[in-house]
């Protein structure tokens, strides 16, 4: 693929809930192999745009092209994962009754082939497949340093670890594009540093393209290649971190929030 051809392009997307416009004519693109940050004050529409990309919300206008050919606004929600897209949630959406291991194994669903009957009979094809995918999952468990909670039920884990398991679940899908909605929110400094390290590793070593929503400005400006800024559902700035830092509109939007 041409390095400058966008892996994802959001084109003129508008989404409203009744009279309340969450997104108005939002356009931006994501290039393969970059960390693309989305920032903006509370309620700016960051999560909404992620929800549109992952097929969870259906915008009333616009289209979202993935890998140049799939319009995600027209793709059934459960078919998007198989195209190579994964995400995490602002308020964690793990399978609380399953162990860490099973949460990650559940993410292998799209890559597994065993049918219902093979699952029920298990010995043979299904078992071999389970073992193969277990190896992929164990590698991610090691990478994220969560081996000690491998068999723990995730509902009972502390917040910071749950965030990490959720990242692991998204990684286990082996996506080409990973959407992260505030992966560091509510974490202490040490946990944040760990998380930033994992994200950079994912990006550098695994070559996954990342869209990152984050409130911590220092961190965003440090690790992202390009930043798009939303305010009241509109794009008010788009560019490299250095330009964004100087942008009058952005400074205004954040000053407005501080008052």
């Amino acid at each position: 693929m041409d390095r400058n051809a966008a892996i994802l392009s959001v084109e003129d997307v508008s989404l409203h809930f009744g009279a309340n416009a969450a997104l108005s004519g939002v356009s931006f693109d994501v290039r393969p192999g970059e960390i693309r940050a989305i920032i903006g004050p509370n309620g700016a529409g960051k999560t909404s745009i992620l929800n549109c990309i992952s097929g969870f919300y259906r915008p009333q206008q616009g289209r979202i092209l993935f890998k140049g050919q799939h319009d995600l606004t027209q793709t059934p929600t459960d078919s998007i994962a198989a195209l190579g897209l994964a995400r995490t949630f602002q308020n964690i959406a793990l399978y609380t009754g399953l162990s860490t291991l099973d949460n990650l194994m559940a993410a292998r669903h799209i890559h597994m082939k065993q049918n219902m009957l093979q699952s029920m009979l298990y010995w043979g094809a299904a078992q071999r497949e389970e073992v193969r995918h277990r190896q992929v999952v164990e590698e991610i468990i090691d990478f994220l340093e969560i081996a000690h909670i491998r068999k723990a039920v995730v509902g009972a884990l502390p917040y910071g670890l749950r965030k990490r398991v959720e990242l692991g679940r998204a990684l286990a899908m082996q996506p080409d594009l990973l959407l992260l909605d505030e992966p560091m929110a509510g974490m202490n400094l040490e946990e944040k540093e760990d998380m930033a390290r994992f994200i950079l590793d994912i990006y550098e070593r695994r070559g996954v393209t990342i869209v990152l929503i984050e409130h911590d400005m220092g961190l965003v400006m440090d690790i992202s290649d390009r930043v798009v800024v939303l305010d009241f559902g509109r794009v008010i700035a788009d560019g490299p971190p250095d330009a964004i830092k100087q942008d009058e509109k952005v400074i205004q939007a954040y000053l407005g929030e501080a008052n």
Binding site: D78, S79, A93, I110
Partner: peptide, 14 residues
């Protein structure tokens, strides 16, 4: 089980 625990996430996981 993923349907039981979080049907929205399950859908996004395929």
């Amino acid at each position: 089980v993923s349907i039981r625990d979080n049907d929205l996430a399950a859908e996004l996981l395929g």
